[in-house]
Design a protein around this nucleic acid. Structure first.
Length: 326
DNA sequence: TGTCCACGTCT
DNA sequence: AAGACGTGGAC
């Protein structure tokens, strides 16, 4: 059987090549569920190398669902500082509170129940079923999608859907080692079947790969349009303290500390702008030093020599860094 | 130095 | 259901 052979090849490759990751340690079932939950939330839209130190730090101080469900929001945010997509951590806590209250501090064991939890969508629910519960599910993340596309020489952005993932499963097969198998497929996509310069000569599926046969590894991506926006950012300084406000105005970096700013139209002069990226937005920021008159609501003075004491998004830290160097 | 790419969920 | 949401790394 073809599927048996592919599955076997993939697992054999994984057994000999898998990375040692903190959430892949041998654990009790309770811890396995918790580690899977936290790591999968962190891994949403975020690469493994970035997640590792955050995961270790998080688990060290917040070791279980109970402590996560109880931790104060501002304290929790500190463990996410710099990871981005901050709504993830808010959803993670909400989920922990639901698990604490209604599920006896365990993860529910069905896809449908998992998907009802905040922050758990199609990918994460399937990942949890496979990784935490060893059930024969295959999460469709960017890595696995790419492996399937290359294997079948598909190109179009949405050519691998949930429906034909079922067909792909006939090709990929499955395993009683469902947890290892899901991770093996992702690992293969990440380490070997890379977006650029895939390492085909090291790939266990080289003889089964239609893309390799055709020498054609192209995958057509959806283009996200880039948006250019301009902002006037005001710096208020009092000795070594700077005024920041809680951001309730803009949709990005919601409720986090930013310098006061407003959106402006594209300046027609050649004002010096700094460039930042938030999501698919290209932010052009003009810095203006201002004198404070009156009161600015939701503001606080931040000591620039004690930035570690605050939870600040990378955008704000980059502004501080810029100010330090002028 | 700027541009592109990687990476899921929610509304 | 198209667009919003962050950051880091490669070139």
């Amino acid at each position: 059987m073809t599927k048996f052979i592919l599955t076997k090849k993939i697992l054999y490759w994984y057994d000999n090549n898998k990375r040692s990751l903190p959430w892949r340690k041998k654990l009790s079932q309770v811890k396995r569920e918790y580690y899977t939950l936290v790591s999968e939330f962190m891994l949403q839209q975020t690469q493994v190398a970035t997640v590792i130190p955050y995961f270790n730090n998080f688990i060290k101080d917040i070791p279980d669902i109970k402590s996560l469900s109880k931790i104060k929001e501002h304290k929790l945010l500190k463990y996410w500082e710099g990871l981005g997509y901050y709504s993830r951590v808010k959803n993670l806590k909400k989920t922990a509170q639901i698990l604490e209250k209604n599920f006896n501090r365990r993860l529910p064991g069905t896809i449908d129940q998992l998907k009802l939890l905040p922050g758990i969508g199609d990918y994460t629910s399937n990942a949890i079923m496979a990784i935490a519960f060893n059930k024969p599910f295959i999460p469709l993340d960017g890595n696995i999608e790419r492996v399937i596309k290359r294997l079948l020489n598909l190109k179009l952005p949405k050519e691998v859907t949930k429906d034909n993932l079922v067909k792909s499963k006939k090709i990929l097969g499955n395993s009683t080692r469902a947890s290892d198998y899901a991770q093996a497929l992702m690992e293969l996509g990440s380490l070997i079947c890379r977006p650029k310069n895939p390492l085909c000569h090291q790939c266990p599926l080289i003889k089964n790969c239609k893309s390799f046969k055709k020498k054609d590894f192209e995958i057509i991506k959806e283009r996200k349009k880039k948006i250019d926006k301009f902002y006037l950012l005001e710096v208020y300084k009092k000795s070594n303290k700077f005024l920041l406000i809680k951001n309730t105005k803009f949709n990005f970096l919601k409720n986090l500390q930013i310098f006061p700013m407003k959106q402006i139209s594209k300046p027609n002069n050649l004002a010096k702008t700094l460039n930042f990226k938030i999501s698919n937005m290209n932010m052009n920021v003009i810095i203006k030093f201002s004198k404070l008159k009156g009161v600015i609501s939701n503001s606080s003075w931040i000591d620039s020599s004690k930035l570690e004491d605050y939870t600040l998004p990378t955008f704000t830290k980059k502004i501080f860094n810029y100010l330090k160097n002028i």
